[in-house]
């Protein structure tokens, strides 16, 4: 009872995520528009550059909204499981997802498995009617039924809160802008070398190219911190902590999720299919070295001890005893919580 997240909490969360999704699309349109304007200015085509760039941005946004989940799932190597008739080894997984869909009153999501021994899971899609939940084979093998239930409860809460829509847009839009930026940066170095050599042959062409490179470099310098900020926004600690609490609201079992979080973060295996664009989707950040290298500035997830501490507090309110080994983890991270 005490752990209950009132309906108003997640309605507010849904509104918040809808607003942020629109804001993100707006930012992407402006950023690409600027880039297009810069290219248009440097190449002399003028406003046509802005028009083309904005059209690309709008198409990109529509594409990620409607097909982004398939892109993310395919790039993670996820294979769909037939929920009506699952293979024997995935039966329990499908059963647990069904349980969480019943508990939340949401439609049954599509279920995917990633063939990787590192335990992790994520949810994606544009709304609860078009949602998918993916887990690695490592997760299914290493967690027991209660732990798995906690993880799937967490993912189901992301579905209910529309976190999946915003994080999906971030994954695809930020991913493709980063890719575009990368491409132009490489082009700049490459093209820069070439323009110097061609300078003697054709002064005018080299000059135009150099102006183009200069302008794009400036625009990229503006874009880079915006991208960084967007990824940070996508996985605010609040969003992850709310999903943890809502998971307990569904399962009524804070210990299962706490044990799962410990097991996932203790596991030494590295999830190979995760990358910069998709890391924020997972229940525990899969890019471990990345997380350790720069703890405070780049954290996409709250630290595990902090998350377990929150679950311990809920267990206390529910009158459920918390195992000592988890208590030890909760105590260990005292200094880290910022």
């Amino acid at each position: 009872m005490s752990a209950s997240t009132a309906p108003t909490t997640f309605f507010r969360e849904i509104d918040h995520n809808r607003r942020q999704s629109w804001l993100l699309v707006g930012v992407v349109v402006v950023v690409l528009g600027l880039l297009g304007g810069a290219i248009g200015y440097a190449t002399g085509v003028g406003w046509v550059g802005v028009g083309i760039a904005v059209a690309i941005a709008v198409l990109l946004s529509l594409g990620s909204f409607f097909a982004g989940d398939q892109l993310v799932l395919a790039s993670s190597g996820a294979k769909e499981i037939d929920v009506a008739n699952p293979p024997e080894q995935y039966k329990q997984f499908v059963n647990v997802v069904t349980e969480m869909s019943v508990a939340s009153g949401l439609p049954m999501p599509r279920v995917y498995v990633i063939d990787d021994t590192a335990p992790n899971a994520f949810a994606t899609g544009r709304d609860p009617q078009h949602a998918s939940i993916a887990a690695t084979t490592g997760l299914l093998e290493k967690l027991d039924r209660e732990e798995l239930q906690g993880v799937i409860g967490h993912e189901m809460s992301h579905v209910r809160n529309y976190d999946i829509r915003f994080t999906l847009l971030v994954a695809v839009l930020v991913g493709s802008i980063a890719l575009l930026a990368d491409f132009f940066l490489r082009f700049t170095f490459w093209g820069g070398g070439r323009s110097r050599s061609s300078n003697s042959d054709n002064d005018r062409g080299g000059g135009g190219l150099q102006a183009l490179i200069f302008v794009i470099a400036i625009v990229l310098a503006i874009i880079a911190p915006i991208i960084a900020r967007l990824v940070q926004l996508a996985v605010s600690r609040r969003r992850e902590e709310l999903a943890d609490v809502s998971s307990v609201d569904l399962t009524r079992n804070p210990v299962g999720l706490a044990r799962a979080l410990k097991a996932i973060s203790d596991d030494p295996e590295v999830l190979e299919v995760a990358n910069r664009a998709t890391q924020h989707l997972y229940i525990v950040n899969p890019i471990k070295s990345f997380e350790e290298r720069s703890k405070s500035m780049w954290d996409t997830h709250p630290p595990i001890p902090e998350r377990i501490r929150v679950l311990e507090r809920i267990a206390g309110q529910m009158g459920v005893s918390f195992p000592p080994e988890l208590e030890a983890v909760a105590q260990s991270g005292g200094g880290q919580g910022a």
Binding site: V96, T98, E99, M100, V102, R145, L250
Partner: peptide, 10 residues
């Protein structure tokens, strides 16, 4: 087991 759980959750 899953039916039992689903009854509880439903």
């Amino acid at each position: 087991t899953t039916t039992e759980n689903q009854i509880g959750f439903a």
